[in-house]
Amino acid sequence: MSEAVPPLGGARFNGLAMIEDAGLMGMITLRGDLASAAMKAAVKTALGLGIPDQRQALSGEGGSALWMSPDELLLICARDGVAQVIASLEDALAGRHFLALNVSDARAVIRVTGAGARETLAKLCPVDLAPGTFTPGMVRRTRLGQIPAAFWLDGRGAFHLICFRSVADYAFGALCDAAAPGGAVGVHG
């Protein structure tokens, strides 16, 4: 039995920021009534997390929950735990209107870290990335160059950028170009 192939194959680039393939992970799209007690309980049971506030991420030992839209979360967990999390959600939400889908293979995750991380993203995304404005725990869905993308900032200062698998090379290439040595803007730290 073969193992899954990650879209970026462990690629890494060290420039103004470190751009690296975050590797394989479990991802689940969960849609439903985020305000309902049932949903709250389901996510708590499945991942041990609450429902994140608007455009926020919550992280714990079991994984992370990212707010994607008023009726959608992206749950991140270990890749081999996806089936279990989905089963747990389906169990908890049985009879209710919801959607839980394994999307682990649909996306690529790129980690952007280092002193130039904010500027690297700011070259590609129309988002205010000033340290006082974009703070840890925030999630932003936006445009990266010419593709849709989402990123969130964890508590250790790492940005996690999520895009569709088919454009992983474009996203990685664009980030490397933006982080090329010599291009420091010198604005965001």
């Binding site: 070259k123 160059g145 010419q146 593709i147 088919s166 454009v167 090379d169 474009y170 664009a174 170009d177």
Partner: peptide, 12 residues
Amino acid sequence: AARGPLFQPVRK
């Protein structure tokens, strides 16, 4: 940056 390989996203 939209030149060469980044001119337009290529979906693979």
